[in-house]
């Protein structure tokens, strides 16, 4: 049962981080379908930092630099979306889809190249070795494994709530997603605000990515991408009505369903039911489809999301 709780919290943390990222981008008026790819690149940055830093520097340095590296990697990769969607007014769905494919293919190519070079051609796997360094992220309280990433997610939630609703920046950001023409007319730079929204989503997506790949016991193979978690996070965001606190609630529910897939064999009651493992694997996706079917009708999506802002059309 404690295992279920632990997995629920860590998966909820992933979904929360990424969904908050999605909310920032969409509140500024840009749909970020590329979150999945941003997660992969963030994971790549974090995993590289984790594996390259000398273990003798100690836990603090490793934890902080991993977090910074994954956030930075996500931020840089989100520029692909920002430049295309904001400056070139490109189709945001195509751009995002391309980013997802680019991230998985690119990181696989990069990691395989590093492994092949390091091993002289004998190791062509797409995994980065960081087992020893990963220990620093985990603290055991009895059977419960606390991960620093859980704390990161909680901090992100508090900060996101304050930034979005209690600051001038947050108000301006949301204005750009609702009615960019009006925002522009009172002197807000819509392009800058949209850049801010996308880059914040890059940071949060990157953090979500490193959190996700370190949830497993073994090393993560980059050719798998992040198995649709970026899209699950988008479902969480929609279910959470683009509001940080509601997103947190939605993330916990989705995290629970995802965790069931991981631990169902360890719970006697569920094992007794004899439901095949495939059903548990499908569960989070089925639930999110159902939830979306019931909640999308009265959408609270920012009004101007997905529409490139053209100053000339004011």
């Amino acid at each position: 049962m404690i295992l279920l709780l632990q997995y629920t919290i860590i998966f909820a943390a992933v979904l929360l981080l990424v969904a908050l990222g999605g909310a920032f981008a969409e509140h500024s008026g840009v749909i970020n379908i590329g979150l999945e790819g941003i997660m992969v690149i963030g994971a790549l940055g974090g995993a590289l930092a984790m594996s390259k830093i000398n273990i003798e520097y100690g836990g603090f340095v490793i934890v902080v630099s991993t977090i910074v590296a994954s956030a930075a990697a996500g931020l840089i990769f989100s520029l692909f979306l920002a430049v295309a969607a904001i400056n070139f007014k490109a189709d945001q769905t195509i751009t995002g889809t391309a980013m997802n494919m680019l991230a998985t293919a690119g990181s696989t190519v990069a990691v395989k190249a590093m492994n092949t070079a390091a091993s002289g051609g004998s190791d062509v796997s797409s995994a980065i070795r960081y087992i020893n360094q990963k220990q620093f992220f985990i603290h055991r309280f009895g059977d419960f494994e606390f991960s620093w990433f859980m704390l990161v997610a909680v901090i992100a939630l508090v900060v996101a709530y304050i930034v979005m609703y209690k600051t001038r920046f947050g108000l301006r950001l949301r204005a750009c997603g609702e009615h960019p023409q009006a925002a522009d007319s009172v002197g807000i730079n819509v392009y800058k605000m949209r850049y801010a929204g996308v880059l914040i989503s890059g940071v949060l997506g990157g953090l979500g990515g490193i959190t996700f790949i370190t949830t497993g016991v073994s090393e993560w193979k980059f050719e798998n991408g992040v198995v649709g978690f970026g899209f699950l996070a988008l479902a969480v965001m929609i279910f959470g009505a683009w509001d940080p606190l509601r997103i947190a609630g939605a993330a916990v529910i989705f995290g629970l369903f995802r965790a069931l897939g991981n631990v169902h064999t360890g719970i006697p009651l569920l094992e007794h039911l004899g439901i095949p493992g495939a059903v548990y694997n499908m569960l989070p996706y089925i639930v999110s489809l159902l939830v979306l079917a019931f909640t999308s009708k009265r959408s609270r999506a920012p009004k101007a999301e997905g529409i490139p802002y053209d100053k000339g059309l004011r």
């Binding site: 007014k89 391309a98 980013m99 680019l102 690119g106 696989t108 797409s126």
Partner: peptide
């Protein structure tokens, strides 16, 4: 394959899609 990986093709095709987003521009 001793040096590179086959996914380089996927990388190139995804790069092409990304660039296709700029076709309108």
């Amino acid at each position: 394959l001793q040096v590179y990986s086959a996914q380089i093709s996927d990388f190139i095709s995804s790069m092409i899609i990304y660039l296709c987003a700029f076709v309108g521009f």
